[in-house]
């Protein structure tokens, strides 16, 4: 957690932020309506909380620059509307996403049981390769908790997801989870790169074969 704190967001006027980032990722936020997707992004963006955010219609967009492990990460954050009617619109963006943040509300059992539905959507549209961060939001509302932390952990383990509980209202784990997710995204990218480097060897062989 200490490391994550130090690896905070680059200040806006930091010249590094305006330079080409070392890594650029598209991250799509999904989850039921009213679990706190937009509030989470607002906390990440402005480091404050307002209970007065309007409901998202269609999609919203945010950019977040982070410096993690001395690398500049630019995150394109796509905030989607939670209502089921909009899902068919959201689905097309799964394909473009490098990572998906799947959020539920720890005070709503409903939103947690819909996580499986969302996972099937992600799998269907984006395949297994996509990095997924499961977030249980609203830890500040401990008295109304309906989903034990253990349940989130078990589900995350079962589907091999990164997992955090967080609070957009208090700021708890908001930056920490995104910093960890950046590392995961980078690891995935490196994996893919390594694979890609292996691929050209095959055609070369073929070439020599034909010759």
């Amino acid at each position: 957690a200490m490391a994550a704190d130090r690896a905070g967001a680059a200040p806006r006027d930091c010249p590094k932020a305006s330079l080409e980032p070392d890594h650029l990722y598209n991250v799509l936020f999904v989850g039921d309506s009213h679990v706190g997707k937009t509030s989470f992004l607002y906390r990440l963006h402005a480091d404050s909380f307002t209970p007065n955010l309007t409901a998202t219609v269609g999609l919203d967009y945010r950019i977040k620059n982070l410096v993690v492990d001395n690398k500049h990460f630019a995150l394109r954050l796509w905030d989607s509307a939670g209502q089921e009617r909009y899902h068919s619109m959201t689905k097309q963006f799964f394909r473009k996403a490098d990572g998906v943040v799947l959020m539920y509300d720890i005070t709503s059992q409903y939103s947690f049981s819909d996580v499986r539905y969302w996972l099937s959507c992600i799998q269907e549209a984006a395949g297994d390769g996509v990095a997924v961060l499961l977030l249980g939001n609203k830890t500040d509302c401990a008295a109304e908790r309906q989903v034990p932390k253990k349940e989130g952990e078990v589900l995350a383990k079962e589907h091999q997801l990164m997992f955090y509980e967080c609070s957009a209202a208090s700021g708890h784990n908001v930056l920490e989870s995104m910093v960890s997710f950046c590392r995961l995204l980078k690891a995935r990218e490196d994996e893919l790169k390594n694979k890609a480097e292996e691929v050209p060897k095959a055609p070369q062989k073929k070439k020599s074969c034909c010759w």
Binding site: H34, S39, P51, N52, K138, C141, A168
Partner: peptide, 8 residues
């Protein structure tokens, strides 16, 4: 009236 806006 608005405990957190996020919770009904």
């Amino acid at each position: 009236h608005l405990p957190h806006g996020a919770t009904a």
